[in-house]
Amino acid sequence: MPESLLDNLLLATALLSALAGMGWLALSMDVHARQVWARAPSRGGLRVLRGLGTLGIVMALLLCLAVDHASMAVLVWAMALIGAALVTAFTLSWQPTRLRLLAPWIRDHRLR
């Protein structure tokens, strides 16, 4: 159970990591990438995003494990992923361009 300020910071970071991970995974899908930018990045670019997504999700698990006993950490992580997926989905529905900040190296293809 989280005892200290450090534990709470680690959990907050885990949540952010899960959120970023889910966001990157969504962006790595062609249909959502086109919602966020005018044109989807190349196949290679999408693969990078998918890799980042996996990384974010794994990092979230490691951060959870740093705070709690393994049995609890796994549950916290699994539930955090649910929250992250919901937030990502609703962001895509209502403010898709916000997700651009997850991949600032991808320039908006509409601008020439």
């Binding site: 159970m1 989280p2 959990l11 609890m72 549950l75 916290v76 539930m79 649910i82 929250g83």
Partner: peptide, 21 residues
């Protein structure tokens, strides 16, 4: 995991989120 006697406020609120989902 179902009966939740543990002390973890974040996990509890995430459970509420799951239930509302």
């Amino acid at each position: 995991l179902h009966l939740q006697h543990f002390r973890h406020w974040l996990l509890r609120w995430l459970y509420v989120l799951g239930g509302l989902a």
